[in-house]
């Protein structure tokens, strides 16, 4: 009962706010709707029993990405962009033309079919996967997997993040006065 309620509210939040992102013309409002949508996705993770992933979703997207977007939108002018919006071909319509719609629709269809194929075996059994007896919680299981089986991916992504940090520091450092 509780799981169904959680799923219904999370799914409504995700889809409703995603539609809100598309419907509103104000970039700030779009960001806030995106916040709601990402919160809904965190709720969906919680429905599946993936507590660590749900909290990471909140931490990374709501605490980091959305605030970054809000800053970027605000510093670059925010809603003043509405009147000057143009598509790639320089036409005044901000929403594209027949050509972009058809290409976009095709790409969307292919992505949808690929995704359905990928998750088809999960869809058949929708019950939350019970974690093994050897781990007390999902956190320790994820920790063990990260530093044992997937240590290479873990290290590569940490090097990537370090590169991003150093790059940001180099871009932001003060220039030498001549």
């Amino acid at each position: 009962m509780f799981i169904q309620l959680l799923f219904a509210s999370s799914a409504t939040l995700t889809v409703g706010c995603a539609l809100g992102v598309l419907a509103t013309k104000n970039l700030m409002h779009s960001c806030i709707f995106l916040l709601g949508s990402l919160m809904g996705v965190a709720g969906l993770f919680a429905t599946l029993g993936a507590d660590f992933v749900a909290v990471t979703q909140i931490m990374v997207y709501m605490g980091g990405v959305v605030i970054l977007m809000l800053f970027a939108v605000m510093l670059t002018g925010g809603k003043d962009f509405i009147s000057r919006a143009q598509n790639l071909l320089g036409l005044p319509s901000s929403m594209g033309n027949k050509w972009t719609y058809s290409v976009g629709g095709l790409v969307g269809l292919v992505l949808l079919l690929t995704n359905i194929r990928l998750i088809s075996n999960v869809m058949n059994s929708h019950a939350p996967k019970v974690i093994g007896d050897e781990y007390p919680s999902t956190v320790s299981q994820i920790g063990h997997l990260l530093v044992k089986d997937h240590v290479l991916a873990f290290e590569i992504s940490s090097v990537l993040l370090l590169g991003a940090l150093v790059g940001a520091a180099i871009i932001a450092r003060p220039r030498k006065q001549k």
């Binding site: 507590d51 660590f52 909290v55 909140i58 931490m59 709501m62 605490g63 980091g64 800053f71």
Partner: peptide, 21 residues
């Protein structure tokens, strides 16, 4: 929660969004 303190740190970042907005 198993992720108790992590949850607390994550969810309190909503305050930052509120202050900014």
């Amino acid at each position: 929660l198993n992720v108790g303190i992590f949850y607390l740190v994550a969810i309190s970042s909503l305050v930052g969004v509120g202050v900014f907005l």
